[in-house]
């Protein structure tokens, strides 16, 4: 695609003490597309997201936003650029209603008083823009919502602020079939509205259902970033589990390290 990437990560390194969690990671996120970020447990998906959202400082590498180098020192910097993350635990207050949750910490005021009508209207417009019709009332407490509806509210909260990049951490992990379909539809709609969406997922069905590109992390390295239409299920699974698949992924000599590393990790368990 000829569209310029909205967010680019180049050569990101991140270590926690002696453990190198991210090694020279590149990631390109394009507006109007869903980029699926896949990888096994411990591959560094969450760490990469936390680096992008400013929670972890990076040890090396740079971020480009709209082609310009930017520094992200904290969540506020990321939010200032228009990067919003929807975490797995959603961070919603059960005892507040949908509107109150969506505006939490960024309430609209007129003078001293909260401007409830404006907030409710904006929340309604945002949800309508996402074609969400499943909630009965915007004034119902979040505690009374289903898992899918909560996810929807969390996503709508991220979209409310004219965000440009929305990163979703396993949005369907705890959902049933119908609700998963709803949320995936919503994810697709975000991209269709021109947002750059990063979808972290373990579920290959979800990945192939909505993503335009797939970025695969393997033991802290970005092994491939390919168009979804160019790969098969099996290839992606191979990339996740072995770091390579045919021409894709790590070169042969590089993979040796990886295999060795993986061996040392798995041997004790295999002996039992």
């Amino acid at each position: 695609m000829s569209v310029t990437p909205l967010l680019e990560a180049r050569g990101i390194d991140k270590r926690f003490g002696p453990v190198q969690v991210l090694k020279d990671v590149d990631l390109t996120v394009t507006p109007g597309e869903v980029t699926a970020l896949v990888g096994d447990n411990g591959a560094g998906k969450s760490t990469l997201v936390k680096c992008i959202s400013g929670i972890y400082p990076i040890d090396a590498g740079e971020f480009l936003f709209d082609g310009q180098p930017v520094t992200i020192h904290g969540p506020r910097d990321a939010a200032g650029l228009g990067i919003e993350v929807v975490y797995q635990d959603l961070a919603l207050c059960d005892n507040l209603d949908i509107v109150q949750n969506m505006f939490l910490g960024r309430e609209r005021r007129s003078g001293l008083v909260l401007d409830e009508p404006t907030m409710e209207q904006m929340a309604a417009e945002t949800l309508a823009g996402l074609s969400v019709r499943t909630v009965k009332s915007l004034r119902q407490h979040v505690s009374s919502l289903s898992g899918g509806q909560r996810q929807t509210v969390a996503i709508a909260k991220a979209v409310l602020w004219n965000s440009k990049v929305v990163i979703l951490d396993e949005p369907t992990a705890a959902l049933g079939v119908a609700q998963t379909a709803q949320v995936l539809e919503l994810v697709r709609r975000l991209a269709d509205r021109g947002l750059a969406v990063v979808l972290i997922s373990h579920n290959m069905n979800d990945v192939f259902a909505v993503s335009d590109r797939i970025a695969a992390l393997y033991l802290g390295q970005m092994v491939a970033q390919v168009k979804t239409t160019d790969v098969t299920h099996a290839q992606v699974v191979e990339l996740i589990t072995a770091g390579r698949s045919g021409d894709l992924g790590l070169a042969a000599e590089k993979i040796d390290n990886g295999v060795e590393y993986a061996d040392t990790l798995t041997t004790p368990g295999a002996e039992q």
Binding site: A91, C93, N95, L96, L104, L114
Partner: peptide, 18 residues
């Protein structure tokens, strides 16, 4: 509003910048 938020989910309130 922030009092209710902290009482309901302290972590969510913290992430919301409260």
């Amino acid at each position: 509003r922030h009092i209710y938020a902290v009482g309901g989910n302290r972590e969510a309130a913290r992430r919301a910048g409260i």
